[in-house]
Amino acid sequence: MSTTDIAGQIRTYVVGQFLAGEDASDLTGDYDLIESGVIDSLGLVRLLSHLTQAFDIPADDIEFTPDDFRTLDSITALVEAHAPAAVA
């Protein structure tokens, strides 16, 4: 799976779960999801749960901070770093 595919899957999830029915045209790779209020603390938990399931990431084995979830680009980098089998 390419970086573009991973980023696309993450974007689709974020739009579907946190921006349903809203305009997502501003949602670029570097858009701040936390500062803008798209994702709150509960949203971080939901997103982490999704990532662990969708990309087979062992959440117990990784260290992360809210900054890892700040943008689509940072989330994609987190997935690539912790699920190397996801990138072929």
Rank of each mutant, 00 (worst) to 15 (best):
L27M: 08
E22I: 00
L44Q: 15
Q9T: 10
S74M: 06
D30E: 15
A85H: 13
A59N: 06
T52A: 13
D30K: 10
V45H: 01
V45Q: 03
T71C: 03
T28P: 06
D30V: 07
A83T: 04
G21D: 10
D32K: 04
Q17P: 00
L19Q: 12
E80I: 13
L48V: 14
E35H: 06
S74A: 11
E22D: 11
E80S: 04
V38K: 09
S2T: 15
S2F: 04
S74K: 12
V14G: 03
T65K: 12
A20N: 10
R11G: 01
T4C: 00
Q17N: 10
T4E: 15
F69M: 08
Y31S: 10
L48G: 14
E80Y: 00
Q53L: 10
T52Q: 14
T76Q: 02
A81P: 01
F69C: 06
L48D: 07
I10G: 07
D73W: 05
G16P: 09
D5N: 08
D26T: 11
D32T: 05
A88Y: 04
I75T: 12
S41P: 10
S25Y: 05
A88N: 14
G21K: 09
L42E: 06
T4G: 05
G21A: 04
A86Y: 09
T4I: 09
E80A: 09
P66V: 13
V79E: 03
D23M: 09
D60M: 11
P58F: 00
T28S: 14
D68H: 09
V14I: 15
E22K: 14
P58Q: 11
E35Y: 00
I34P: 10
A59K: 13
A81C: 00
A83G: 14
V87F: 00
A54E: 15
G37F: 06
D67I: 10
V38A: 08
T76I: 01
D40K: 04
Q9C: 02
E22P: 00
A24W: 04
A81L: 01
Y31C: 05
P84V: 02
P58Y: 02
D40N: 12
S41A: 15
D67N: 15
D26Q: 13
L44D: 05
T12A: 14
Y13I: 04
Y13G: 02
L19G: 10
S25R: 12
E22C: 01
D67E: 15
H50V: 07
L47F: 06
A7V: 01
D32I: 03
I62R: 13
S74Q: 13
Y31L: 04
F69L: 15
D56L: 05
V45D: 01
I10T: 09
S49Q: 00
S41H: 11
T76W: 03
G43I: 10
S2N: 15
D60P: 07
D68V: 00
Y31W: 13
D32V: 05
D60G: 14
H82I: 08
T12N: 10
G16I: 08
P58T: 09
F18L: 07
L51Q: 03
L33D: 04
D26R: 13
D67H: 13
T4H: 11
V15C: 07
L19I: 07
T65F: 08
T3G: 03
V45F: 06
L33C: 01
T3W: 03
I34G: 06
E63H: 01
T52V: 12
F69G: 02
I10W: 11
A86K: 05
D32S: 13
A86D: 14
L48F: 12
E22Y: 02
H82K: 10
T4W: 01
D5Q: 14
T4Y: 05
D60H: 12
Q9F: 00
